[in-house]
Design a protein around this nucleic acid. Structure first.
Length: 931
DNA sequence: CTCGTCACG
DNA sequence: GACGTACGTGACGAGT
């Protein structure tokens, strides 16, 4: 370990995706015996990797190796050309669940496993190839893909593993008729029907090669196209110049993409027999397990139990806290790191002094490599006493923090070792502050969310009790509660070991239980594409934060305080006595007992209702006091929740506010924002909206806000199949006016705002699972009239009622509903009797619509880092259908173009909507101006 | 710690 | 025939 890549080194880059597809198509469908999981491609993949290892252990063995995969189907090329690879079929259903298993297989062989969202495997290969050549090494690319041939030469060659044929400069020239460095020119002209590269119509490889030979390169050819003798050819090149140039950009591989991994990380490592055989055994590959055991010179393990028993086995192993190890020096830590590296996975948990990742300090790290085998590394525990200033000394027997992190960094960043956590976003952020980028990751909280949304929460204690039948040590037993509560750095180390190591142990056991269940629950794709990749994206946004101007907030607070004092005096005057205006109880007594106003209704707790709707009715009757209270309440809300509280959230060092998004916060797939909640900053009232002026861009930058227009109604039109709505969206019509026109037989040119307002309320009501009562209250009309509107709506759009009924029936039959992307939301209350029944049905109707919208913006966010590559821009906030960015002023328009393309295309290619998605954009010095 | 209230999509 | 209802969140102050 530890040699630097350079002269004499030989890097092998394996085109992993090509291996998978070849294995999938060449082999008959094969399923795992115990549970029917399709594993044919995994089996073929393992065979090919094994054969590769056998064939390459001789004198010319590589010193460095990596298997490179495609990730996702959207890359920067789709932003250049939306039809790029558009004629590709969706991945076969049987292959999909095998994709993550091939990653695991690669790690089981102890080979680095690389992939990156937004880039193709070919770009990663190109980038590493260039780096290796620049460092003076040789490269062999194990692939026969012609798109990689542009890289050949200069110590780089390709190897067709199936045919055992080497592809050097000569072979490339034979195929393309030009030297490798001009291959992209030929490809740009000839195009490619497989990848849907347009090229120049009527020109194939032969003609293209002739032209490039004659003119030297593509740019010269295009500049001097008028010299081409053949009139047809000449005309084609001149006419299609832009298309040809685009084609060249599409076929040219990115040799300088951002890539965290370094060549040194790819050094060849011997596989750990135990973990490799464990993986093969878990896949139930009998022959291969035996063959590889022989090759490694060890005994094959006993054949695996049927999967369900195997999956439950780790849960049954008892917890033995006394066997957890306390790691106090580098030698011991190295042992744990090697154990993790040999297995290809490790569960990780960090202990800190608080819950705010941006402010707390790291106190220790725990690791688990097997059920029951875990350790805790104390790093920041303090001695009890404390000096006069409360600054305690570090407790004895701890490694220096910097030394431990220096040892752990390569493991935590090793692409071949899976880091397993419970809510990894937290640990990733803590470690990021120490310069460590944790990857790749698995997250038990997100696995549970993908499988169990709507059934129960996803906190570790709940999961442990429910799935491992084990109650973890409560944190309160260590920290105490209330005023006497201490921070984790004050916990004695021997107590901390039991608690912290147990957390890592539980996390590992949960992962081993959940991972194989994802497929059976049919949510592997949801977990892999909508949950897990979001962790890094959100961590980055949260750490970036948004700048908030304290002076603006402070001035507003003062103004609000004055206004409130004035209103309070008026209210006391009107009431004839002093009372706490902020107390609903006291207010209710004043209004309905003392003043005997009408409409006093007591709720289930026996208190009068004094909500805004009640006070508005009273105010409309001409009563001044409730009107003043409404004004007071609005200001009190703005002051306490926003202008006051937000100031406390400004980070002392960054001057910015760092919210925290909860990925599992809403059952539908929406995010939740906490500490502070930046998803409910006022916008509807004029006074409230001014609070957004305090959210500002840094000097020289602007804030850009982009939001989906009517995304939920568009999804409704699609899922319910309402032709009239779909057509209206395609034509860009005013959807509420069009609904009003259909319902009330009013031609569009005679539409009034009032009729449109009613139709708008109905459209929203439909999304929520409409009821006559709800609509009546919203529109303040009699219930019978509201019911009449709803009946008419369903007459005009019978598909909507059919959709609603079908959704409820599906929920009753299956116990869940799902989004267009396969996210499942469980509906355990759907069969309930009584008033809960209505709740559950409306929630079931709403969930697929709200959830599909949530999935779409998640997909957009996950693609954003790649789409933004190179731009001086950062994504700051998500507000359900809106994304907020901060960008150098000069690049705002470029940013809007790119982000809009990603957002509008975010459903593709997994789902092709019948309606267009439309994104509105704004920019300005602050959030109010950008919205 | 629960409730009522109100901010957002 | 009566129930009581629009869907999804988080934070605050009051009052237990």
């Amino acid at each position: 370990m530890g040699t630097t890549f350079g002269k004499g080194c030989h890097l092998h880059l394996i085109d992993g995706s090509a291996f998978i597809f070849r294995a999938f198509h060449a082999l008959p469908p094969l399923t795992r015996k115990s549970d029917g999981l399709p594993v044919g491609a995994v089996s073929g993949f393992c065979n090919m990797i094994h054969k590769y290892v056998e064939d390459n252990s001789g004198p010319d063995a590589p010193t460095h190796v990596a298997v490179v995969f495609d990730k996702g189907s959207h890359t920067f090329r789709n932003d250049l050309y939306d039809l790029y690879k558009a004629n590709r079929d969706e991945m076969p259903e049987d292959l999909r669940p095998q994709i993550p298993l091939t990653r695991e297989a690669t790690r089981a062989f102890n080979i680095a496993c690389l992939e990156q969202e937004g880039f193709e495997a070919d770009d990663i290969i190109a980038t590493l190839t260039r780096r290796a050549v620049e460092a003076g090494g040789r490269v062999t690319i194990i692939s026969s893909d012609k798109d990689l041939m542009q890289l050949v030469g200069n110590g780089v060659e390709m190897l067709d593993a199936m045919k055992g044929k080497r592809i050097g400069v000569e072979e490339v020239e034979e195929k393309f008729g030009v030297r490798p460095d001009r291959v992209v020119d030929v490809q740009a002209l000839a195009g490619d029907s497989v990848d849907n590269i347009p090229g120049a119509p009527g020109i194939g490889i032969k003609t293209a090669a002739l032209l490039i030979q004659e003119f030297g390169d593509l740019e010269t050819l295009l500049d001097r196209a008028d010299e081409i003798p053949q009139p047809k050819r000449r005309q084609t090149l001149i006419e299609h110049r832009a298309q040809i140039e685009l084609s060249k950009r599409l076929v040219t591989l990115d040799q300088a993409m951002p890539l965290e991994v370094t060549l040194d990380d790819l050094e060849v490592r011997r596989p750990d027999p135990a973990s490799l055989l464990a993986f093969l055994n878990q896949m139930e590959f009998r022959t291969l397990t035996r063959r590889i055991a022989e090759a490694l010179g060890v005994d094959a393990p006993a054949a695996a139990d049927p999967a369900p028993a195997a999956a439950e086995a780790p849960a049954r192993l008892p917890f033995t806290p006394e066997t957890y190890e306390c790691v106090r020096d580098a030698a011991a830590l190295r042992g744990w790191i090697e154990a993790a590296q040999a297995r290809g996975w490790v569960a990780v948990d960090t202990e800190t002094t608080g819950l705010d990742e941006m402010r707390c300090d790291l106190v220790g790290i725990s690791l688990a490599v097997e059920p029951g085998r875990a350790c805790y590394i104390p790093l920041g525990h303090k001695t009890g006493g404390g000096d006069l200033f409360g600054a305690d000394a570090l407790a004895e027997g701890q490694m220096p923090l910097s030394e431990a992190l220096a040892l752990l960094k390569p493991l935590l960043e090793d692409p071949a070792v899976m880091k397993i956590g419970q809510n990894m976003k937290y640990d990733a952020k803590v470690l990021a502050r120490h310069g460590i980028t944790v990857a790749p990751i698995d997250d038990t909280m997100l696995m549970s969310y993908a499988m169990h949304a709507g059934l129960h929460g996803h906190g570790m204690d709940a999961l442990s009790e429910r799935y491992l039948d084990h109650s973890p040590i409560p944190i309160k037993s260590l920290l105490g509660t209330g005023k006497a509560q201490i921070t984790f750095d004050r916990v004695p180390i021997d107590e901390a070991v039991k608690y912290a190591a147990e957390d890592a142990d539980i996390t590992l056991r949960l992962a081993q239980l959940f991972k194989p269940q994802l497929h059976r629950a049919k949510v592997t794709t949801v977990y892999e594409t909508l949950e897990r990749p979001l962790v890094a994206v959100l961590a980055e946004m949260e750490m970036t934060g948004i700048k908030v101007d304290r002076d603006t907030l402070s001035r507003m607070s003062n103004a609000f305080a004055q206004k409130m004092a004035g209103l309070e005096a008026e209210i006391h005057e009107l009431a004839g006595e002093r009372f706490n205006v902020g107390s609903p109880k006291q207010l209710g007594e004043i209004l309905f007992d003392k003043m005997s106003l009408s409409g006093g209704k007591k709720g289930k707790t026996g208190a009068y209702g004094t909500g805004a709707d009640v006070l508005e009715d009273l105010a409309a009757e001409g009563h001044d006091l409730p009107a003043r209270v409404l004004d007071w309440r609005q200001i009190a809300k703005l002051k306490s929740t926003y202008t006051d509280a937000l100031q406390d959230h400004i980070h002392p060092e960054t001057g910015r506010v760092h919210t925290s998004y909860v990925i599992t916060g809403a059952v539908t797939g929406r995010l939740a924002s906490t500490d502070p909640n930046l998803q409910n900053i006022p916008v509807r009232s004029e006074d409230g909206r001014r609070i957004r002026e305090a959210f500002v861009a840094d000097a020289g930058k602007v804030l850009v806000s982009l939001d989906y227009s009517q995304i939920e109604l568009r999804i409704l039109a699609h899922v319910a199949g309402i032709d009239a709505l779909k057509q209206a969206f395609r034509d860009g019509h005013d959807i509420h006016a069009m609904t009003a026109s259909e319902m009330f037989d009013v031609p569009l040119d005679r539409m009034t705002p009032e009729i449109r307002r009613r139709a708008k309320a109905i459209n929203f009501g439909v999304i929520y699972g409409i009821s006559g009562f709800g609509l009546a209250r919203q529109l303040r009309i009699p219930r019978g009239e509201a019911q009449g509107f709803i009946d008419r709506y369903f007459e005009r759009f019978p598909g909507i009622r059919a959709y609603m009924e079908a959704t409820v029936a599906f929920a009753k039959a299956n116990g869940y509903v799902q989004t267009l992307f396969g996210r499942r939301i469980h509906t355990p209350e759907i069969g309930a009797k009584g008033p809960q029944a209505g709740f559950a049905q409306r929630a079931a109707i709403n969930a697929p619509i709200q959830g599909t919208a949530a999935d779409i913006i998640r997909r957009a966010m996950i693609r954003m880092p790649a789409a933004l590559g190179g731009l001086p821009a950062r994504m700051l906030l998500q507000v359900h259908d809106e994304l907020v960015f901060e960008v150098e002023a000069g690049a705002a328009d470029d940013l809007i173009g790119r982000v809009r393309a990603v957002m509008e295309g975010a459903a593709m290619p997994a789902v092709k909507l019948d309606v267009p998605l439309v994104v509105d954009a704004g920019q300005g010095a602050n959030w109010a101006a950008a919205h």
